[in-house]
Simulated assay, not measured.
Amino acid sequence: MDFNFENELKDKIALVTGGSKGAGKAIADRLLKAGATVIITARNKPEDENNGTHFIAADLSKPDGTQKVVNEILEKFGHLDILINNMGGSETPGGGFAVLSDSDWEGSFQTNLLAPVRLDRGFLPGMIERHEGVIIHIASIQAKLPLYDSTLPYAAAKAALANYSKSLSNEVAPKGVRVLTVSPGWIMTDASTRMMERIARSSGGTAEEAANSVMDALGGIPFGRAAWPEEVAELVGFLVSPRAAYLTGSEYVIDGGTIPTI
């Protein structure tokens, strides 16, 4: 896919967490094409180190990791205009509530809820001072369609993130900062493949059977396929642009029609 974004994000500084692969990489590339200065974070260096982004190695599931990112960006760039809280994921075993330990629950909430909360807290004061800024929280349709047998802590954390995002938007919208939630459904990424492999190992089946079971649990995807990362990135690119200047406090679902209710 190739679009002409006419440099609409020129002079904007953006951070995309988990921006080295999957949907995060697609979002970072989309913002770069729109003219933004883009910083990405991940635990490990991206395979493509020459794509024009600035990289900060950090484990955002730890408070020290988020503080490192905040400090480095403010020291080097002075401020942040756009924050995409994209990092997230599930590494807990399948098998329902009985196989989940406190550590499983705590790890999911650190990664999927508390990391965005800490980054927001680090960058919001500057946005409020300048009376401008955009924060996007990447949640998940699992906030509404939890998969109890495979990703229960992840789903609960994403539901908390969506609730927090709405509340935060009400607080900071009068101060010039827009806060939005994007909730994707199934996205065709390497992380999705790894999750299917973990479920398959837990269940004793194949990755294909695991994928079919997840699809069945979701009720199917009316569009007939998973989303491409670039499709999620295009929605995010619009939401952070001046064309979406009146949008705040809303959740945007991009799931191919998976959620069966309005």
Score class of each variant (00 low, 15 high):
Ile27Phe: 04
Arg30Met: 08
Gly35His: 03
Val38Met: 04
Val38Ile: 08
Ile40Met: 07
Thr41Ala: 04
Lys45Trp: 10
Lys45Asn: 12
His54Leu: 09
Val70Met: 05
Glu72His: 11
Glu72Trp: 07
Lys76Arg: 12
Leu83Lys: 01
Met87Ile: 14
Gly95Val: 08
Phe97Ile: 14
Ala98Asp: 15
Ala98Leu: 14
Leu100Asn: 04
Trp105Pro: 06
Ser108Asn: 13
Thr111Met: 15
Asn112Ile: 01
Leu113Cys: 05
Leu114Glu: 07
Leu119Phe: 09
Gly122Arg: 02
Leu124His: 02
Leu124Asn: 00
Glu129Phe: 05
His131Thr: 14
Gly133His: 00
His137Gln: 15
Pro146Tyr: 09
Pro146Gly: 11
Leu147Val: 15
Ala157Ile: 03
Lys166Met: 10
Leu168Val: 07
Glu171Leu: 13
Ala173Asp: 05
Ala173Ile: 09
Lys175Ala: 12
Ser183Gln: 08
Asp190Gln: 13
Arg198Trp: 10
Gly204Lys: 09
Thr206Arg: 09
Ala211Tyr: 12
Ser213Tyr: 11
Val214Ser: 14
Ala217Asp: 14
Gly219Lys: 06
Ile221His: 03
Ala227Gln: 06
Glu230Cys: 08
Phe238Met: 11
Ser241Cys: 14
Thr248Ser: 15
Glu251Arg: 06
Ile254Leu: 14
Asp255Ile: 05
Gly256His: 07
Gly256Trp: 05
Thr258Leu: 04
